[in-house]
């Protein structure tokens, strides 16, 4: 039976009670130690795939663990041949992982994403560009404009909107980055034009959250979404 690995913590950390692992029925958790460190592991179910239930189980285990002690969360789906190999890896790389646990002690991750409210951003784009405004007006007077006219306006607008995205991404970075110990880009994905993860001391998270709140108020064309506190997924170095 192969071993599923959730995260790495210090050897002194106790396993939180009442937690269950991946699989159906959920696998029981155990600790594997080595080099002064402990890995939280369980048996790995046959044919593990990224299902909602299993992703949540992984997330829950790492989150609960992070409440107790610093933890290096592993990426979902990390599987070792057996417990013995996990212990060997901990021992071999003890220094590197212990150093990261020290660096991340008392820190949490917040992820901030932004999308544009379309009408508001179109207002901004048109307000800044009299020529584009004139073209839009002409289309409107012509009952919407010809296919080519609409395409022309639309392409120009799309380019301006993209510029605006870059501008706003820079704005968020400039305002928020100084409030965190570290800032790293979030996973590239759809649905937002910028995603940033911030590493902050737990006690200093309010500063970041307040700034996000203020940005949302000052820039009504931005919709900001914050997730955290999270285990420091984006700040572990493989």
């Amino acid at each position: 039976m192969s071993t599923y690995v959730y995260g790495i913590t210090r050897e002194t950390t106790a396993l939180p009670k009442g937690l269950a692992g991946v699989g159906e029925p959920p696998a029981g958790l155990r600790l594997v130690t080595g080099g002064g460190l402990a890995a939280v592991v369980s048996d790995c179910p046959e044919q593990l795939r990224p299902k909602r239930r299993d992703l949540l189980a992984h997330q829950k285990v790492v989150t609960e663990l992070a409440r107790e002690a610093p933890v290096l969360p592993l990426r979902f789906g990390s599987v070792s041949d057996d417990d013995r190999r996990v212990g060997e890896v901990l021992t071999e790389r003890a220094e590197r992982y212990a150093g990261q646990l020290d660096r991340l002690d008392g820190r949490v991750e917040y992820n901030v994403k932004a999308v544009h409210q379309q009408d508001a951003v179109l207002h901004l784009v048109l307000a800044d560009d009299p020529e584009l405004r004139a073209l839009t007006e002409a289309n409107r007077r012509a009952g919407g404009g010809s296919y080519d006219d609409r395409l022309r306006v639309g392409e120009l607008v799309a380019a301006r909107v993209k510029e605006r995205e870059q501008w706003d991404a820079e704005l968020l970075t400039q305002v928020l980055e100084p409030l965190a110990e570290e800032c790293r880009p979030g996973p590239e994905s759809s649905g937002w034009f910028v995603s940033l993860s911030f590493l902050v001391r737990e006690a200093e998270a309010d500063r970041l959250l307040n700034a996000v709140g203020r940005l949302g108020k000052a820039y009504t064309h931005l919709e900001l979404r914050v997730n955290g506190p999270l285990p420091p997924y984006s700040f572990v170095d493989s």
């Binding site: 789906g77 990390s78 890896v89 994905s189 997924y233």
Partner: peptide, 24 residues
């Protein structure tokens, strides 16, 4: 918020080359 978090679970986090990862 759940999806935002799961994205991090899938895309970030420590990768240990001595272990294999399930296909995503």
């Amino acid at each position: 918020g759940l999806y935002d978090v799961l994205e991090l679970v899938l895309d970030r986090g420590l990768v240990i080359d001595a272990f294999v990862r399930v296909s995503l």
